[in-house]
């Protein structure tokens, strides 16, 4: 238990720092790389949460595919590779109180609802088979809907991005 808690703490701190860097850095490429750290940390947290299939998917889809998309997007929009001064807008000052108020609201709600409830100790890792039984059983219809969303997204992305 101790080991898990220590692991969680380290990863959580790294994630928070990395996330803060993503939203504050002055370099788009650096932001993308910090985002990789956040996503990888999230994948690690998923493993701690006994969700190995989701973790693997996170690595494959997010770190593999989505990051490549981001980097290509950065490249194609010809962002400067070096530091840039005007990545933030004038609402920066508004963002801090907004984020803090939300955090306070959520923190109050969480402490109120869950207090010091503990996660079950002997949680067994959820197997891929169980997840697929769920997806292709009761959640088949959302799965279909999702397939259509992906199809529409593919078609839409091509239509939007092609030159003519």
């Amino acid at each position: 238990m101790i080991a898990q808690n220590i692991g969680f703490l380290i990863i959580a701190i790294v994630m928070i720092v990395a996330a803060l860097r993503v939203v504050t850095t002055n370099n788009v490429v650096h932001a993308a790389l910090w985002l990789v750290v956040v996503l990888a940390g999230a994948a690690a947290q998923y493993i701690l949460l006994a969700a190995e299939f989701v973790a693997v998917t996170q690595v494959l889809v997010y770190i593999g595919a989505v990051m490549v998309l981001f980097l290509f997007g950065t490249m194609l929009t010809r962002a400067r590779i070096g530091a840039e001064s005007d990545l933030n807008n004038s609402y920066k000052k508004l963002g801090i109180p907004v984020g803090l108020v939300m955090l306070v609201a959520m923190g109050l709600a969480l402490t109120d609802s869950f207090g010091d409830e503990k996660l079950p100790e002997s949680a067994k890792v959820v197997s891929t088979q169980e997840v697929s039984d769920q997806i292709f059983g009761p959640y088949l219809l959302p799965f279909w809907a999702l397939s259509f969303v992906l199809l529409a997204a593919v078609v839409g992305a091509i239509v939007l991005a092609r030159k003519d």
Partner: peptide
């Protein structure tokens, strides 16, 4: 909340 801040603050 960090994400929200990013959405608001980034140009």
């Amino acid at each position: 909340c960090i994400g929200v801040y990013g959405v608001v603050a980034r140009k």
